[in-house]
Structure formats: C-alpha cells, structure tokens
Amino acid sequence: MKQRWIVALKVVAHAACLGPVAWLLWHLYLSATSDPAALGPDPTHTVTFFTGRGTLRLLVVTLAITPIRRLIPKLSWLIRFRRMLGLYAFFYACLHLMTYVWLYAGFSWAAMVDDISQRRFITAGLAAWLLLLPLALTSTTWSIRKLGGKNWNRLHWLTYAAAITGVIHYWWGVKSGVKTPTTITVVLAILLLARPVLARRSAARKAGVARIPVG
C-alpha cells in the first residue's frame, strides 16, 4: 500500500468517524433553534443510543483488524488504522458518558453515586469506560516505547474486557426480553473466537512446514 493511499484512506476514516458527531451537533443546534423535533420525540434517548452504539461499533471494527490481517496478509497495512479507530471508540465513549452525566443524572453527584451503587448496568458502563481510559492514555508512540512492545500489547488486551463489558452494559440497559443487542454480541463473539482459531491455524502451518522435509 502506497503512503499516498494510506493518507487518503485516513482522511476518509476521519470523516466517517467525525461525520456522525457533526450530524448529531447539527441536529442539537436545529432542535435548539428552528425544529424542536430534530432529534425525535425522545432526544435524550436518541443521543444515548447514538453515542453508545457508536462506541461499540467502533470497538468491534478495531477488534476486526487483527483477524482480517491474519486471514488476508495483503491487508496488513490495516494496522495503521487501529490506533486511530480505537481512539475514536474512546471519544464516542466519552460522549456517551457525558450524555449520562448531563441528561440522566443532571450533574448531580448524589444521583450518580446512587446509580453506580444500585444499578449494575450503569456500573458496567462506567467500568467499560474506565477500562478504555488507560488504553487511550498509552496510545502515544512515546508510551509504546516507554512500556516496551510486550507490556504495551499485554495492557491493550484490556480492549477485549472493555468490549465485553460494553456489550453486557447494553444487555442490562435494555428492557428484559428485548434482543436488539444480539447483532453486536454475535459479531463480537465471532471476532473474539477467531483469535485462538487463527492463532492455532498459523501455528499448525508452521509446524506443517517444519514436518514436510522429514516426510
């Protein structure tokens, strides 16, 4: 992949990640000015699900990069997009958290403490955000060098924990019986299960290569 193309694709990726936020801000502006119904009948709910689903989708896209590279070595250059997508996932998670603090808790510490201590879906959501925090903080090249590749990699296994916790948060948040989180759960499960399968496959290949001369 030529550098020129990478740069062009990065511009596209930035636009794809920021576009929805621009849409949201534009509709917030509209709802405050000309069209009160711009964000639908329940704007709080609209913003909550918009930012929450955005976070999970971006996390899943981030987690898809490694299996795709394993399956199709030609697409190895995708690694150059992973950090950026991961940071956007954290950005959406921050917007989602702000939605809660502002629109549900009304900036009330008492309401937040009450929620965190009593409501497991809010606890899970906060835990997922906290799991992403160290990943965002160590996303600079400087911290990778400082931590060393191995430690940095180990730390970033937290992505799995964050994604799983995020999906659990989604299931606990919806009304019992509602199965809308099914799709994201299945996709995440496939991506997580793909890792050991692909790792074993490449290990078997290496072993196979080693055995052939003996035969």
């Binding site: 917030l28 709802s31 405050a32 009160p36 119904a37 964000l39 009948p41 329940d42 704007p43 709080t44 709910h45 913003v47 629109l103 549900y104 009304g106 309401a111 009450d114 929620d115 409501r119 497991r120 879906f121 606990w172 948040g173």
Partner: peptide, 15 residues
C-alpha cells in the same frame, strides 16, 4: 432493578 424511577424524560420537550 436496573434504572431509577425517580425521574422521567418528557417526550417532545427540548433535550
């Protein structure tokens, strides 16, 4: 068990 019933969101009101 999973969310508060102390407050409610008024449908159709500004965010």
């Amino acid at each position: 068990p999973r969310w508060s019933q102390k407050r409610e969101r008024v449908i159709g009101a500004p965010i």
